[in-house]
Design a protein around this nucleic acid. Sequence first.
DNA 1: CAGTGGTCTAGACCACGTA
DNA 2: ACGTGGTCTAGACCACTGC
Lengths: 265, 265
Amino acid sequence: MSKPSIAAGAEPRRAQERSPAGAAHRGEGEGLESKPLYRQVRETLIRRMVDGVWAPGEPLPSEIQLAAELGVSQGTVRKALDEMAAENIVVRRQGRGTFVARHDEERILFQFFKLVGDDGERHFPESRVLGIERAKGTAAECGALALPRNGRVLRIRRLRTFDGAPLIIESLILPDQMFPGLADAPVPNNLYGLYAQRYGITVARAREQLKAVGADSDTAAMLNVEPGAPVLLIDRLAYSLDGTPVEWRISFCLTAGFHYLSDLT
Amino acid sequence: MSKPSIAAGAEPRRAQERSPAGAAHRGEGEGLESKPLYRQVRETLIRRMVDGVWAPGEPLPSEIQLAAELGVSQGTVRKALDEMAAENIVVRRQGRGTFVARHDEERILFQFFKLVGDDGERHFPESRVLGIERAKGTAAECGALALPRNGRVLRIRRLRTFDGAPLIIESLILPDQMFPGLADAPVPNNLYGLYAQRYGITVARAREQLKAVGADSDTAAMLNVEPGAPVLLIDRLAYSLDGTPVEWRISFCLTAGFHYLSDLT
DNA sequence: CAGTGGTCTAGACCACGTA
DNA sequence: ACGTGGTCTAGACCACTGC
């Protein structure tokens, strides 16, 4: 017998009778490759989400069903799902079930949009697309998005306003082949929802780097401030469920009446 | 019998024989006041840390011992400790034990100091205190620190440099009575370590609000830039283990060669 | 070797949501 | 009434640490 594992290739292991003593099947050699069972379960479930087996918003099978299918105990499935809930890739609701997290406006607002009104209110700004182009990526762009040299990218530039006042001017760079046809249809305000619904790509986490810079003349004109006025530069790289970089976003934000909220926990 | 609970007043409940069926002691009425057992355990342990029963860096009793002392199962203690480990209140090390988290430089660097070099290196700047004063707090100060009107505060102003170059100029406001004698001794670079060691106050989390602003003439002079130069304003409120606001800190940071790193997970 | 946390299982009952 | 996740218990074995 080998270390505990879910049968290779994401195939579930049949339950078949197990030795009565809980973990009696464990402990043999198997020199390498042995993550905890609950992590293997987690990765199996994530792989299925990436493969589109369950779409965002849909319920997963119940813990009992998953446990039976994967040949592990309910407790192990539970630990995997609890961890996934902590990562916001799944939502658990007592009495109802476990659901693939959706990129609805509320989630964006709390997980990915950190600009908050000074009164504490969370607002979602309106967006107006200024331009879209497809081109060969620069070295920096291809590097950030893990594309081969000269890989094609999609660039989107848009102005985001709140109550009609300019708030953010931002540039997005995407891997062109990952989002075929995106440039041909209207671009919605909630882009991560579009990535998920139309392309099956789920943004799971992002890394943001912030600087205070002076607005250049272009930026200043778009934001309706004087050149050199202080603006908050946010450089975001967003990653999908499987860790692939999906979007590079550079935003220049006005922070009069708004601030970037960061919880250190 | 009432709902599951640890005997009132943080006193442990003796183990005494329990009905064999695991949860058979649960289920009676008890109209209100019923958090899950593992949260009660968590709060009992936190209260003890606040009371100084275990100092930072010291080991807690083993899960088995805590379970016996509190009259709950090892699994319940484990769930409480796992949650506390996720909150960085406690550090668990296999084979060694569970320890109260310390505010050593490494923890500060990763949990509370988000300014990172553009090369990705995390640096801890040097500090030079410019002034300390005790005074009646302004309305804003007392409000932020949850002090009564006109409560006394301690103000510290310091310049933080990296490799000799000015990086941050910051003002700290503390409740005076919470830190007696702090103004009479040299102020170390790692303040949270001092709060913990000398005053038994553990900073557990903080909330930061960021803006890009133009440096006023004072700030500009201290940071060696021209007035109006863009600087990153960080407004931090730090809370202790029991949720009390402990420190209000306003920092003006240069972000040339450095950036504020925020992980959206 | 003994003691600690880490993983895994099995089974009970509770609380919630839906029908 | 039923099925879901949430809590709690009990007990097994594993992996690591330090004596």
